[in-house]
């Protein structure tokens, strides 16, 4: 009995601590690079939260899951879906924020942008293949 209690107590402390570290105010993961349906679409928490003053609930309340890149698995995570107001399209409709159908390369940084952000050499090597 004591063992169980201790276990529950300990795990709840860990859980709370864990929740506190992941959900602390103004704390968010690094830039997310979506890889599907096309490679290299960037989402910046910093830009949306710090620069634009949005809070977590703005998106993480039915539009995006907390876990990064889950949206990739959804069929409507396409430009057509966005045009229908899904995901990014919820705000990027030309009204709340610029239309998802414009300024393509603001988010689409591509294989080049992805490689650069992850320190992978993308340009032609200096000497050898």
């Amino acid at each position: 009995m004591r063992l169980i209690l201790t276990t529950i107590l300990c795990s709840s402390i860990f859980l709370l601590a864990g929740a506190a570290t992941t959900l602390a105010e103004g704390d968010y993961p690094e830039d997310i690079y979506y890889m599907k349906p096309v490679i290299g679409v960037v989402f910046s928490h910093q830009l949306h939260v710090e620069d634009n003053g949005m809070d977590c609930d703005s998106c993480h309340d039915g539009i995006f899951e907390m876990e990064a890149r889950l949206a990739e698995n959804e069929e409507s995570f396409t430009m057509a879906g966005l045009a229908d107001g899904e995901f990014c399209g919820a705000c990027h409709d030309g009204d709340t924020a610029y239309d998802a159908n414009t300024r393509c390369t603001t988010c689409h940084v591509g294989v080049i942008g992805y490689s650069r952000a992850h320190g992978l050499v993308n340009e032609e090597g200096p000497a050898h293949h």
């Binding site: 032609e124 000497a127 050898h128």
Partner: peptide, 10 residues
């Protein structure tokens, strides 16, 4: 040559 020389595509 690609193994032994320092030349490249460009």
């Amino acid at each position: 040559h690609h193994v032994y020389y320092g030349v490249s595509r460009q």
